[in-house]
Design a protein around this nucleic acid. Sequence first.
DNA 1: GCGCTTGTGTGCTGTAGCGAACAGACCCTC
DNA 2: GAGGGTCTGTTCGCTACAGCACACAAGCGC
Lengths: 231, 231
Amino acid sequence: MPATTRLWVENRLLQDLPITERIRLVEQCDTVELAFGTVLCEPGHPILHVYFPRTACISLVTTLYGHPPLEMGLIGNEGMLGATLALGINTAPMRAVVQGAGSSLRMNCTQLRIALRDNPMLLCRLNQYLFVLLMQLAQTAACTHFHEIEPRLARWLLMTHDRAHANHFHLTHAFLANMLGVRRSGVTLAAGALQQRRLIRYTRGEITILDRKGLEAASCECYSAINTDAQ
Amino acid sequence: MPATTRLWVENRLLQDLPITERIRLVEQCDTVELAFGTVLCEPGHPILHVYFPRTACISLVTTLYGHPPLEMGLIGNEGMLGATLALGINTAPMRAVVQGAGSSLRMNCTQLRIALRDNPMLLCRLNQYLFVLLMQLAQTAACTHFHEIEPRLARWLLMTHDRAHANHFHLTHAFLANMLGVRRSGVTLAAGALQQRRLIRYTRGEITILDRKGLEAASCECYSAINTDAQ
DNA sequence: GCGCTTGTGTGCTGTAGCGAACAGACCCTC
DNA sequence: GAGGGTCTGTTCGCTACAGCACACAAGCGC
C-alpha cells in the first residue's frame, strides 16, 4: 500500500486540508461504525464529539412538539457534524440522526477546539462549510413549504445517492415520511409514481436508483440550487 | 448630555462590546435611514455593507422561482445583517429587505473584516449571533411547514413588536402574506380572527397590538422557543 | 408449519390553503 | 367632486395533504 493511501481519509473536508494538518487531525480521530437510527446529538445539549463521515450519512432534523420530525440538512463525506464548534459554541443546534449506516471519523470536541485554535486553515474550512449549511437550510425550508411531495422525494433520493456512494440503499416509506415531514401514505404515492416512471425501484425498504438523470428532471430545482452552492 | 450617552448605540450587539472597542467600531459606522422595502442584499451577491439596526427592522427572505418570497429570519437592534462575514465569506446567503423603516448603523464590509481581525471579542459576538440565527432558521422552517396561518401570524407580529419598540406599525395584508409565504386572503382571515379576539386592531395597513399576552397565547410555541434560544 | 413484526397498497373523510375574481372602503391628487 | 390607486373583505371551486383505518404480503423466530 503506497504511503499516500494512508492519508486518504474519505472525507472531503479533511482531505482538502494541507497534508501535515490532515495527518495531525486524523491521528486524533478514531474510526466508528454508525448504526442506522443512532441519535448523535440533541438540540440544546452539549456536543461531545464531532463526526467526519466516510461512508455514513447523517441527517439534521428539527422537532416540533406534536409533529413528526423534519429534515433540514444532510451530512455525508463532503462535510461534518459539529461544525458549529467553529463558532466557539458547544451546543448542538439540531438533532442529528444516522440516516445511512457506515463508518465515520470521530473526534473529541475539546481536541477539535484545540485544533481550531492552532490551525487557521481548518477554521476556514469549517466556516465555509457552515455557510454552505446555512444556504442548504434556507433552501430546504422554502422547498419544504412550497414544493410537492414527489419532487421533494426525488430531490431527497438524489441527495442521499450523492452521499451513499451506491445506487442502492435501505429506506422505508415511513422513514422517508419523517424526513419529508409528510404522511407515510403520501410517500407511498410519490414513490409509486417515481417507480412507474422507471426512475427508481423499491421492495420492502430496498431502494434502487435506476435513472439518475430522470430523477434529476423529476426533482425540484432545489437540488441543483443546493449543489451549485456547495461548489 | 452626559459622556455615556455618546456611547449608547441602540444596538445590543454593539452595546454589549467593551467600551473601547465599541467606540472604535461606532466611529467607523455611518448612520443611515432605511426606507421600507429597500433590498439590502441579494443571495449570491457580494456584501458591501453590514448593518446594525437601531430602530429599523430587516427581514431575511428566501426566494424560490415561481413562488412568493418566504421570511426565514428577522433582524432588529438585537442583531445585525451581514454576520456571515465572521465566517470569512463575503457573499450574502439570502435576500434582506427592510421590513420596518428606521435608522441603522452601517459599516463598510472591508472595515468590518479588519475589525474582526483585530478584535476577538467582536468575532466572538458575531459567532454567537450566527448560531442564534441558525437556530431561528431551523425553528422557522419547521414552523412554516407544520403550523397554521393564524398562530404563525401571531408569532410574526410578536417578533416584529419586539423589534419595533412601538405597539403600532405599518403592515399590509399583502406584505404579511409574502412574509408568511401564504395567500393574501389567508392573512385577511387570520388577521380578522385575531382582531375579533381583540388581540390586534388594524385599518389600512396600520396595525396596533392591543393584547400582547393574548397574542402570545394565540401564537405557536415557536415564539417562545426562539426567544429562549436568543438568551 | 405458526404467529409476529415490518413494510406497502388503498380506501375513506375532513380541511387548510390555493387561485382567481370582484366589490367595497378609504386615501390622495388633480 | 371626480377618478385612480391602495387596502381590505368575501366568495367559489379546487387540490394536496392530513388523519385514520384496514388489508395484505414478505420475512423472521420459533
